[in-house]
Design a protein around this nucleic acid. Structure first.
Lengths: 403, 403
DNA sequence: AAAATTTAAAAAAAATCTTGACATAAGAAT
DNA sequence: ATTCTTATGTCAAGATTTTTTTTAAATTTT
């Protein structure tokens, strides 16, 4: 039976407490530093309830207090912040060539980092390398306990089960990664595994800067060797019935178009991935003997920025195709924004006008669709921070009431 | 400020009651007839809580009881059902040429129906006609009170405000329909307005038969003069940041393809709408002088079913284009199913194989994507029943706890 | 035929959590 | 020195669910 039955959650006093506790903890995260009174206003909860719950959070070492001495009338407010130094999560990004391990605090700050060659042949080996690396890091940073592990994988993942359905880079199929982790971490620890595009989207949602802060509905388009995407709707990742929502990389852009590694033709990925960009560039350069390796868009971009014509033309084309794809994404889910990640955004000044032109050309009935096209706002690698966010989310998000 | 802030709903005893009450009422609707004990199991709530809430619902005249005499051991169970004859909603579908008014009971059964010519020039006139028609119907059926009004409109709708952003058929732009209704219904009554594709999707979700019963995530593709769609994710309609999620009709299928009424080229609608189908058919028939009117797919379908070659070819092409669109829909939101509505489904035996062929050709990496392509399962007009469902939903759905 | 068992529903007592009124804290304004 | 003002803390009251106990009705066992 493949039918997903929604779990029915009925209400009782304890769940009310859980809901309010996580609401408050989340608001502290988002608005820190913040006072109890402000939290009372934000939540609509009574001041006493807030005080009570804050007291509990303080005892759990999740918060720090700081009395503010200012010249306002009235009693000095006490500012609440997430307390650093007590709660950490481990992150693993399993990616082509390198995989990365890191430790983050609950504010999304990386405090330790390490990388190793991904072992394609022996999936379990990567878990071993991760655990060793993590142990070493924890010792060095004198961190005693980890509050969760997040893993982002380049491939299709069943995040509920924690299994990898298909990872084309590594040629892993139906691999239960969760089981491997549980071998090395038999003690009860939260382990969350998801696809790297979803993880990146989550990283933007939780730790995005600037305009991204205000977004609740967006699509993160991860442009790399392939093209993946994570759809965020009402602050939640859309997984899809078969864990493959947001496979925009394989939407058909051109019927019977260029072949794609997925076996079909005309996919967005076959036109706008880094690989496709490099290929188009090389086709232009053939006579000039100045080709680049397929994985090396990072060589094309500086050439374009320095004014090399064929590099510029190639990237503009990429922008054009991305625009076509993004237009269809907008038609599909009508997000507040589409955020683009990947090396390609280093050429933002070149690709953005092209993307915008295509997207705007298709404005529905001339009605203003206030969708933004933005480059990733993150400084840390989104896929690694995303892995951490998978674990951090578990600390903050519990139940929630919706209409 | 265009930023949609999520309302924060904090928990308290009253909301817990609301949650549990609506959970129980919904389960009665879905599982009727059902006993209190069964409800207790389904919800996880204690038997006393269920008894208590059921008592309340009985007092509100929402339920009827019937003692079951069977040969099982133990006390006879009391079966609970939604009580007919006490709660009704009014529905209005504003559509091209005709608009329809109807009265439905809370089980989605139509008890009265009437239609009138839509007044394109004077939007308010339609509200007047609706109210007169409803009044007459209520008198005839001796219904004293209506518990809500649902309106489905062929066009883009801001369902929160109840305003029509753009309705191409009627050439209405930024029309606040809710205000017009409130003129005629100043007393506090729930009025809900939404786009007809969303309403149809909702009708399938609530009152769909057969396989549809088990679906929580699907896309309803409404094929008519244009192509609209409603996206249902986790049993909720996806509205989108600009109230235009699911505009799959205007996704680009062919770059620089056929012109579309939206002003662009190559939209799905320009290839697979009834109008496009008729146009393609007429192009084939030109020499034979046997053309049909643009709105008349219903003439092409019987011809095809009787074996007329060009009719068959035309419909197969429509199926092919629908397949291309559906493939991209699947890539986008990965639904459990895509449900197709409209006259075209009378030719299901012709279009379905074509759709399936295109969709399956694009199966991602050869992984089984268990997506179903289904014709609408409703007997009543989906757009009208959908309008009713907008109102019925308000009676049943209140708050809910999610993770 | 009487007693025990089974299933369903209702009632009373116990537990949990939020609310609301009041109290306390700390500084500014009068 | 007193009163305001704002932030936080305390505690009984109120609402709701859960747990426990009764009551009800029919079947099965003794």
């Amino acid at each position: 039976m493949n039918v997903k039955y929604r779990k029915i959650i009925s209400g009782n006093a304890k769940i009310v407490r859980d809901i309010n506790r996580s609401t408050i903890l989340n608001l502290i995260r988002l608005h820190q530093p913040v006072t109890r009174v402000r939290l009372s206003h934000l939540t609509g909860l009574n001041k006493s309830t807030v005080s009570n719950i804050v007291h509990e959070l303080l005892q759990d070492n999740l918060l720090s207090e700081e009395e503010l001495k200012d010249q306002n009338v009235g009693r000095n407010p006490i500012l609440l912040r997430l307390k650093p130094g007590h709660h950490y999560v481990a992150a693993l990004n399993l990616d082509a060539v390198y995989s990365r391990v890191a430790v983050f605090d609950i504010n999304g700050k990386m405090v330790g980092h390490h990388k190793f060659f991904t072992d394609y042949e022996h999936p379990e080996k990567n878990v071993l390398l991760f655990s060793k690396s993590l142990k070493k890091m924890m010792k060095k940073l004198s961190i005693e306990q980890i509050n969760g592990i997040g893993v982002s994988v380049a491939g299709m993942v069943d995040s509920g089960e924690g299994s990898i359905l298909y990872a084309p880079h590594f040629q892993w199929k139906n691999l239960n990664l969760m089981e491997l982790f549980q071998k090395y971490y038999p003690q009860p620890i939260d382990i969350k595994i998801d696809n790297d595009a979803n993880a990146s989207a989550l990283a933007e949602l939780w730790f995005g800067k600037g305009e991204v802060t205000k977004l609740n509905d967006f699509v993160f388009l991860s442009v790399g060797a392939g093209i993946g995407s994570g759809i965020v709707l009402n602050r939640k990742i859309l997984e899809g019935a078969n864990h493959s929502a947001g496979e925009f990389g394989h939407m058909t852009l051109v019927e019977n178009g260029l072949p794609c590694i997925c076996g079909n033709r005309g996919c967005l990925e076959a036109y706008a991935s880094d690989r496709a960009t490099a290929r188009r560039y090389n086709a232009l350069q053939q006579k000039k003997n100045a080709t680049v390796q397929e994985s090396m868009v990072e060589e094309i971009i500086p050439r374009a920025l320095q004014g090399e014509k064929s590099a510029i033309r190639t990237l503009k084309e990429t922008g054009h195709f991305l625009g076509l794809g993004i237009k269809n994404i907008i038609r599909a889910v009508d997000p507040q924004a589409v955020i683009i990640g990947g090396k390609i955004i280093q050429a933002w000044s070149i690709i953005y006008p092209e993307i915008l032109r295509v997207v705007k050309s298709g404005d529905l009935y001339g009605l203003r669709q206030e969708v933004k096209i933005l480059p990733s706002s993150l400084k840390v690698r989104p896929r690694l921070l995303g892995a951490a966010t998978l674990a951090i989310r578990e600390i903050f998000e519990e139940y929630q009431i919706v209409r």
